[in-house]
Amino acid sequence: MKTESTDIAVSVSGLTRKFGNFVAVDNVSFDVRKGEIFGFIGPNGAGKSTTIRMLCGLLMPTSGEGRVAGYDISREQEKIKKQIGYMSQKFSLYADLTVEENINFYGGIYGLKASELKARGEWVIEMAGLTDHRRSLTGILSGGWKQRLALGCAILHEPPIIFLDEPTSGVDPISRRAFWDLIYEMSARGVTVFVTTHYMDEAEYCDRIALIYRGLVIALGTPQELKTERMSDEILDVRCENPHDAMDEIEELACVKDVALFGSGLHVVTPDASLAETEVASLLNEKGYGFDAIGRISPSLEDVFVSLIEEADSENDGGGTMREARDA
């Protein structure tokens, strides 16, 4: 049964999936608005794919409920499948078929009429930049092209909601950028995009993100909200010589909570940035590390994510976390 049209495309509450004793997705709740780019961010094995498979009607939830395009994910999978496009982590293209043959195959699967298929097929080929390669075997295409073709095949039937599971995994930075341009194009045309990734910089490109870790959603909001509201500590950016040696000494300071390598510099997590700034500077001078700059910066999403993970680890002692290991 379809609920009244609202501006919610995906709605999930208390969604849980267990495999034996292992809780892959633990009591997850969130809403995705229509036309939004919603990022599901987390390391490998955090539960991203399991969630997306449940939402696409490919996997039954153990408990909890969810609606996609107004349909129940436990009971109306077939209706959901007509409303969505799904691109899995391993692009499900046939390497021994040509670009056109793949498109025609998926067009047939989605039940497109011949005229529709022709028009949509052309659109996909153009979108993916495959005009010169339409008769090439898919197997010989580069990663970036395959990925765009896979996306094209997933949206042949013009679904209002698309699910992309790690679409940019293993693709070089330039192709990743080009792919995100496509995502924005679709979003601009009102399509809801639900995308998973483990790249922190891609998280910044989303309208809203959920951070998932060990099956739990540990933060939810716009990138801006997460960076300003979820991070109680402040970040100092330190550019100095031999940062990997200096970090051990900086970590000893009482006002410093954590130090991490960040690019070629260091990020120092501290409750009081101005105090830490003077202390770190004097420490570096004293020990003879030359330094270029120390300054307070707004945290990156990676800083936020790390701090949230450590917070989550210290709260639950479920097996196998880093924090638990440190405390042990």
Binding site: P43, N44, A46, H244, F305, I309, M322
Partner: peptide
């Protein structure tokens, strides 16, 4: 590749130790 940021940081610490 594909490792969470916390583990990545741990990993690099080990590498730096080896380097030293």
């Amino acid at each position: 590749n594909g490792v969470d940021p916390v583990s990545r940081r741990d990993f690099w610490r080990i590498l730096y130790r080896l380097l030293s």
